[in-house]
Design a protein around this nucleic acid. Structure first.
Lengths: 238, 238
DNA sequence: TCCCATAGGATTGTATGATAGTATTATCGT
DNA sequence: ACGATAATACTATCATACAATCCTATGGGA
């Protein structure tokens, strides 16, 4: 029963099977709300009444609520009892914590990449880095962040650790806005590229210790920029 | 309006305010299903029909579905389109990945603990370690795991990094069963305590590098035991 | 004028019932 | 024994309803 499939796929890289096109509507709902938050359509601390989300998304309360449950456990929103969801704030302390964790995990990603990457994943990473460099000259912050995400995705891919990928994704989703704005700090983009250059060299040279160090350093610098912004924009609210 | 409260609390350590007793029913539902999985009431790969869960928990489908969304994003279950949720399997490769991440994060926790812990948190950790040692002689695996969780909780508490705590919690929830069974491997409990002893010594001596190394080593050993079990129990299904 | 309390509105928390769509199983004819 | 079709069992989604609770506004009293 498998023979035919094998034959059909013999000259193919990614098989053509439609990957469960039964995309449940609720996934779109999650995406919609998530990106509304990321884009700043809702501000930090703002309430998200279910009814409003129903209108915005055009689906029933059932689906909106299910989406909220997921966003809640991603940490993007907080749900206050009998008050409903609000966009989660990120305090400077929390941001620092997140960046500390990211540093460790991206360090690990580098080590694993060196140990496990093959020609394909290595090539993909180089390509992504090239595109990242050109994206950094763009003015649109979302283009920059997207390019950077793709770069990291290649890194993770090559590292071949599923949990690592998911964890980093989760952490990043909580600081999307921060990442976009911190890349707008004058000079930060170029500096960022310089740091990643070091990273790439170490990665391709197979120097695990240097790669990890470069990753940690890069995250630390990004953290500094981001936390600066945070401190400035809400010096002592609460 | 606050004065009275302040007066009332002046001689109190933990204030008595009932911390939002409005615990939504749905939280209990999540806990219920989660522990049913952890306890082995449902086996890996087994389907969890909504209706059955309604009967088990005594709540409506609405709540069950919301709970499922949360468990899904915690990675405890997979939801197949039009087939519903099944208990997520953990392959040896995934387990390896999870343990690699854990190693990094627990290493970080140690470093942060040394940098940030105060007398209270240090004392709590020592106490938790003492109880852990005695719990290890118990035959009940859940008692052992619980004691260990409390120990880690103290460590995290002292490290003062929220994201770190949440991330580790998430990872651990995916391998609860594994952790319980791997502690039953003959000799593993004692060995585990020995490793943690090293960890404690380094922590209390303030030797960050040694503490991190001990943490990494401990997780690596645990990983080995756990993955062994996994390989044995599903050598090549699929 | 200012404070307090009560009433009313808004929103969440939870349940129920309904319908359509899809995957799995059972059935049946050949 | 095999393939097609019918029956079944779920999920996916919606609409509706009602109690509980929070917030606000209104109005009375000092």
């Amino acid at each position: 029963m498998d023979e035919r499939v094998v034959k059909a796929n013999v000259a193919v890289e990614h098989d053509f099977r439609v990957s469960r096109l039964a995309a449940p509507l609720r996934h779109s709902v999650v995406d919609s709300i998530r990106s509304a938050i990321a884009v700043g359509r809702f501000k930090v601390g703002e309430r998200l009444p279910e009814r409003g989300l129903c209108e915005m998304t055009g689906v029933s309360r059932t689906l909106v609520r299910e989406a909220l449950r997921q966003l809640e456990s991603e940490g993007l929103i907080h749900v206050l009892p009998h008050r409903g969801p609000v966009v989660a704030a990120v305090t400077p302390e929390q941001a620092e914590g997140i960046y500390q964790v990211r540093a460790q995990l991206e360090g690990l990603a580098c080590e694993l990449f060196i140990a496990k990457a093959n020609d394909a994943t290595r090539k993909a990473l180089k390509e992504a880095f090239k595109q990242l460099k050109s994206a950094m000259s763009s003015n649109d912050p979302s283009i920059r962040v997207n390019a950077k995400n793709r770069f990291y995705q290649c890194l993770i891919e090559g590292a071949g650790n599923e949990a690592l990928g998911q964890t980093l994704h989760l952490l990043n989703s909580r600081i999307t806005v921060l990442r976009a704005t911190s890349l707008q700090v004058p000079g930060r983009a170029k500096e960022s590229i310089r740091e990643l250059n070091d990273l790439m060299e170490a990665l391709l040279a197979g120097d695990a210790a240097a790669a990890r160090a470069a990753a940690v350093r890069h995250v630390a610098m990004a953290a500094e920029a981001a936390i600066d912004i945070l401190r400035r924009e809400h010096p002592a609210d609460k």
